[in-house]
Amino acid sequence: MSEHKQPDLARREFLGRGAVAAAAGMALAPGVMLYGVAHAKPADQPASSKVRWGMLVDTTKCSNGCNACVDACNKEHGLGNEQHSRPEQRTQYIRKVELRHKFTGATHSLPVMCQHCEKPPCVDVCPTGASFKRADGIVLVDRHICIGCRYCMMACPYKARSFVHEALTDQRPHTPRGKGCVESCTMCVHRVDEGREPACVEACAADGSHAIIFGDLNDPNSEIAQRVKTYASSEIRADLGLNTGVRYQGI
C-alpha cells in the first residue's frame, strides 16, 4: 500500500492499480478524497499484517427492508440450502437488524455479521485453534480442525456464528461447509485475496445504497481509513474493547 500517493484533497483522482481499486476511489465530500480498497494477494504469499481489512457501514444509507447484502452473501456462499434444519438452525452469515430506540423512538436498519475483531473472543475460547485470525485481520474457522464444540458461538458477542446442523451438498468450492462444524462470515476472503470486494459490499453498491465500504484500515489513503478518521464511527459492544474490523456510522 505504500506506493499509494498521498491524497490530493483538491481534486478527484483515481488509483491506477486494478479495476476494482480504481472503481472504488470516490469523493466522499467536498475536500475529502478517498482511495482504492483492495489488491490481489498472490496465492503463494501469506496474508500480511500490514493490512487490516475492515468495513464501514453507514446506517443512514441502509434502508429498512433492503436485503441486498444478505441475499448476495447467501448466493456467494451457497447458504440457505438446508433441507431439514429448522429456521433457528439455519446458517446466516449476515443479517439485517432493525433497531428502535426505546426512549427516543429513533429507528435504524443495519447489517450485522462477524465483526472481525482484533481480539476475537471466538479465537480465545476455541480449544483446538480452529477459530483463528489471519494476519490481515480476517477471522475464519479452519474446518479441518473444528470439532464442533460450539464454545465460539457461546463466546461471540455478536451472535455471528452458525453451526451446520445437517449434511450439505453442492457447496461452493470457496466455502466448504460441512455438517458438524461452525462457520461465519469470511469477509469473502476468497474475493479479497483476488483483489475483489466482499459480495455484500458489491451488492449494496449495485443496489445504489453504497452503505458499506470495504478496505484496508491500515492504509491511511484508503477510503475506509479516511472516512473513519474524518467522521465519528462506532463499534458494536465497544465496551468489550475488541477493536472490531467492522465499524458503523450513524448509530
Partner: peptide, 25 residues
C-alpha cells in the same frame, strides 16, 4: 455431542492455550 466427535484426536493434539476448554481437557 460434539459436531465432529470423530475428531476427538484433534482435541487431544491441537491446543490453544488461551482457551479454558483446552486447559480443561
Amino acid at each position: 455431542d460434539l459436531g465432529r466427535p470423530d475428531r476427538l484426536i484433534v482435541a487431544m493434539t491441537y491446543y490453544n492455550f488461551k482457551s479454558i476448554f483446552a486447559w480443561n481437557i
